[in-house]
Design a protein around this nucleic acid. Structure first.
Length: 478
RNA sequence: GUCCCCAUCGUCUAGUCCGGCCCAGGACACCGGCCUUUCACGCCGGCGACGGGGGUUCAAAUCCCCCUGGGGACGCCA
């Protein structure tokens, strides 16, 4: 029998941009803890900043969470629609003398901060309006919370342990703006309390807000939830993750051809681990994850490891699904599909041939275009090395053999290539490479028989002859 | 500047709570080799870390202190 109430956690992003890697991991940790404990995962949109919040951002966030598979049990709640809760709470604090109106101007506040800095202190509000009796005409006031001046506020953190703050460091924070909207620290507390949130799991950048939030809970007479502050994710250079670190938005990874499961797996391992295990299914994570096992150290985002993991997932994906994904992405690469049966076969062959040598769906699609486009363009280096007078004979000979074939397959092609090797006394590589370049334009491709099979007799002949003609034309000019 | 958090290979981490089993294990990346028609996959091997200094102890990556370094927070942003 467990006496504690069911766990309720929430993810509360602000809709001021895309969901990024860091936010996604916070969401994941919350979600995993909820699923592990059999609790509820609640989604709340913190849109109190009218200036920067957008409907597009909300959509992007919902889409990102859905794509990752992080389903929520309640919400999305919008803070802009919960105004009554904040107004009531602010009134209550005002009435109890725990909050007061402040008429200070921007300039005044700025001067205060400068003065504090000059004294070598943390810039903060000095509380002068606590004593101001009369309103200042024409100045709409903000409401400030009277922070406890003496003693310490202690945060009992599930990840960090006990963190102690000297109350003298805290100033009287604004809880209601002059336009009547609530500020972040206030809205979070009111929401978390009224929504019955039992565990606040968030990024370490919120640790410093926690003591003042605890005081708000106490001032409002709410029970204080449990806190867990996860270390931040940094860029490759250990600096705060930002746009200059390349792709940071979740949707960008989707578009780049990553699997949601790979991203989830990677994100889970950033700050959390289970012995030496690297690969986790969603079921594994739900079973093994515990917020208390999250480490304290900030971690650098490592795109290479994500890529490696994605390759692992890609290789486990069925050929049918890969073919579908490639077909979906091909048009963006200039390939027009006709939906024929032959095309479907080719798509499956491409998936089979490219699966072992691709790490993302985009990479795979790019590699596949060559089998669907009419023309090949040669890689300059490859052309210079392999489309030369010495290899023309090989290209022509292969073409001559292919012409007599009804069907291209490993079974029909092997004897032809072996025969040419024997008759010329050369190794397979001497034949395969020129043919490969003639057919794909590159020195890198799937097995040459696979390539020929995918391309089909006509395309193979066309490409071999075009390459041979090209070399011939070039040498006659010389 | 002030406050808060953190500190094991280049990176993610195991080990740290309950000191000896750790002259520190795994993974990514990197470098070699094998496989091989190229590339990749796979397999084998290599390189590579307890930030520094003081303690405590028979014994410290593990406990304590200082320093240094990194990060975060100091808004009518969240």
């Amino acid at each position: 029998m467990n006496a504690s109430p069911p766990l309720r956690v929430r993810f509360a992003p602000s809709p001021t941009g895309h969901l990024h890697i860091g936010g996604a991991r916070t969401a994941l940790f919350n979600w995993l803890e909820a699923r592990h404990q059999g609790g509820s995962f609640i989604l709340r949109i913190e849109d109190t900043d009218a200036e920067r919040s957008t409907a597009e951002s909300i959509q992007a966030i919902l889409e990102s969470l859905r794509w990752l598979g992080l389903d929520w049990d309640e919400g999305p709640y919008l803070q802009t629609q919960r105004r009554a809760f904040y107004d009531e709470a602010a009134q209550r604090l005002l009435a109890a003398g725990k909050a007061y109106r402040c008429y200070c101007s921007k300039e005044e506040l700025e001067a205060m901060r400068e003065a504090a800095k000059a004294r070598g202190e943390k810039p903060r509000y000095d509380g002068r309006c606590r004593a101001r009796s009369a309103p200042v005409p024409g100045v709409p006031p903000v409401v400030r919370f009277k922070t406890e001046a003496a003693g310490d506020t202690v945060v009992h953190d599930l990840i960090l342990g006990e963190v102690r703050f000297n109350n003298a460091e805290l100033d009287d924070l604004v809880i209601q703006r002059s336009d009547g909207t609530p500020t972040y620290n206030f809205a979070v507390v009111v929401d978390d309390a009224t929504m019955g949130i039992t565990h606040v799991i968030r990024g370490n950048d919120h640790l410093n807000n926690t003591p003042r939030q605890i005081q708000l809970y106490q001032g409002l007479g709410y029970p204080v939830p449990r806190f867990a502050h996860a270390p931040l994710i940094l860029g490759t250079d250990k600096a705060r993750l930002s746009k200059r670190h390349g792709a940071t938005s979740v949707l960008a990874y989707r578009d780049l051809g990553y699997f949601p499961q790979a991203l989830v797996n990677y994100l889970a391992r950033l700050g959390w681990s289970h012995g030496d295990q690297e690969v986790f299914s969603l079921q594994d994570l739900i079973r093994l994850f515990s917020i208390q096992d999250v480490g304290k150290t900030a971690s650098a985002f490592n795109p290479e490891k994500l890529l490696w993991l994605n390759g692992l997932y890609l290789r486990q994906t069925s050929m049918e699904e890969l073919a579908r994904e490639v077909a979906r992405r091909l048009p963006a690469h200039g390939v027009i599909l006709n939906g024929s049966a032959a095309e479907a076969t080719k798509l499956r062959q491409a998936a089979a041939a490219l699966r072992e040598r691709s790490k993302t769906l985009e990479e795979m699609t790019t590699a596949a275009t060559i089998y669907f486009l009419d023309e090949v363009s040669y890689d300059a280096k490859a052309e210079r090395k392999f489309l030369v007078p010495e290899t023309v004979g090989i290209l022509e000979e292969v073409a001559a053999h292919v012409e007599r074939l009804d069907e291209l397959s490993e079974a029909t092609l092997t004897p032809i290539f072996n025969g040419i090797c024997e008759e010329r006394g050369v190794k397979m590589v001497a034949i395969a490479q020129p043919v490969r370049v003639a057919l794909t334009g590159s020195t890198v491709s799937p097995g040459i028989y696979e390539v020929m099979q995918m391309l089909g007799r006509e395309a193979v002949l066309r490409r071999l002859r075009r390459a041979a003609a090209l070399v011939g034309g070039r040498s006659s000019v010389q």
